[in-house]
Design a protein around this nucleic acid. Structure first.
Lengths: 199, 199
DNA sequence: CGGCGTTTTGAGAGAGCTCAACATCGGTGG
DNA sequence: CCACCGATGTTGAGCTCTCTCAAAACGCCG
């Protein structure tokens, strides 16, 4: 989801950027919540430290993703946010965001709508992960993303990126694509994949 | 998440129950949105029908889960909802829910907070699915759920249920538990699992 | 042309899935 | 109280499929 869609302009105006080196913390569990973060570049992981020092990763956010939406409604952060690479993040101050929601119900509604949409999207991705077979998973992904394009999927990023997105090694992904193409279930052409009407 | 937590009382008063036989549709893609559904019993799947008649499952909701939160903000449903078993669902009419949000910002905020929380939760589950090793995945699950109980996890439902929840066959789950117990990383006692301080 | 990242294909191993058998437990009815 | 039954829990063996490690072709850019 593009965050720009729902972060209200007033809050965006108040945003502050911060640069991080790999390993540096954006915030830590228990810190007072400053607001909502958007990752501009690099990767930031959300994690908790379990007993015995083990780290439990909750999520890894890449460029364009937001972090800690729930922190808007909580006084303290519930986990650590640590840069996995050198990274840039943008803070939308909680006070401003909430103030906008208060005086502008439409903004609040758009926020809720965006979250609801994200819930849908995440559930779909979980469903996808339940599919073990690489070929089936790829088909699921393609069918899902072809809805708009009349059977054609425009790939965002490289095939490697897509492979990571759907939770396959790039080798497995290439092989699945090759197999689907051999059996004439798809056709490929630089950056695009077309689903053929069969099976 | 317990839906009762955030569905406003006024909206709950207006709720309507509906019973479904397996295979019957709760709603279909393109139908005018009536509101938000909660599954009371049985299982309901959200799916789209792709070209060539294949069904793409987006999500399977069990008892206690809500369906179609996003429909509150959309005039039409974006997928089909079909009972996988005989099922009961409860409708919270869109008009009432939105009206409550309109005149009660607190309710709206609780709704947004609940959604934000759900987003967190789902992301965590996706992260979990990225862990291939059964043993590691089980450890991740346990560490995650033990946070509250000081190292002890109270299992909701049967071990089979838990296995399904974390995306393992029950056999693999049993074996992983047995292995963790053998290596003294956990201790088990009817319905509870205790994480031991090691590794 | 040289270097780097993506794309592609090959071979092997490991791990989870599947199928199967059996144990255990709780409930039901004789 | 005991036999029966179904569902959960448990363990075994084999197989399939993906992951991992490797190597090479390809494309792009300086």
């Amino acid at each position: 989801m593009r965050q720009q869609d729902w972060i209200p302009g007033e809050a965006r105006a108040a945003a502050v950027e911060r640069k991080l080196r790999a390993g540096e913390a954006l915030f830590r569990l228990g810190d007072k919540t400053m607001g909502l973060w958007e990752v501009i570049a690099g990767r930031v992981r959300l994690a908790r430290v379990a007993r015995a020092g083990r780290e439990i990763v909750l999520h890894v956010a890449g460029a364009g993703e937001t972090l800690a939406e729930a922190s808007l409604f909580s006084p303290h952060y519930h986990c650590d946010a640590i840069a996995s690479t050198s990274a840039t993040a943008r803070l939308y101050p909680k006070r401003e965001v909430l103030a906008v929601f208060e005086r502008n119900p439409d903004a609040a509604r758009m926020f809720a709508a965006a979250l609801a949409h994200q819930v849908m999207d995440l559930r779909t991705r979980i469903e996808q992960r339940n599919i073990r077979s690489a070929r089936e998973r790829v088909r699921h992904f393609l069918a899902l993303n072809a809805v708009a394009g009349g059977g054609t999927v425009e790939l965002r990023g490289t095939l490697k990126d897509v492979a990571a997105e759907i939770g396959l090694t790039h080798e497995a992904f290439y092989r699945a694509l090759a197999a689907l193409e051999r059996s004439r279930q798809i056709r490929r052409s630089r950056g695009k994949i077309t689903l053929l009407n069969r099976v």
